[in-house]
């Protein structure tokens, strides 16, 4: 899977490496700003008040 992805990247080795690093950074940013905050709402860590629910 990763081997296939790597072979899809264009250009010589330094360019490929740069693209791979940028793609990885974009994925991490998406995870930490969108995916993880959403997943967290499904977990009980935020329930600290007493309420009718």
């Amino acid at each position: 899977m990763y081997g296939w992805l790597w072979r899809q990247l264009p250009g010589p080795l330094p360019v490929r490496t740069l693209i791979a690093v940028l793609a990885l950074a974009a994925v991490l940013l998406l995870l930490f700003t969108v995916v993880f905050p959403y997943v967290e709402t499904l977990l009980p860590f935020n329930d600290v008040t007493v309420d009718e629910g």
């Binding site: 009980p44 860590f45 329930d47 600290v48 008040t49 007493v50």
Partner: peptide, 15 residues
């Protein structure tokens, strides 16, 4: 003061 109890759970509240 209220918080959740036990830690990492929402089963009870500590008051």
């Amino acid at each position: 003061l209220t918080t959740c109890n036990p830690k990492f759970s929402a089963r009870e509240r500590l008051i």
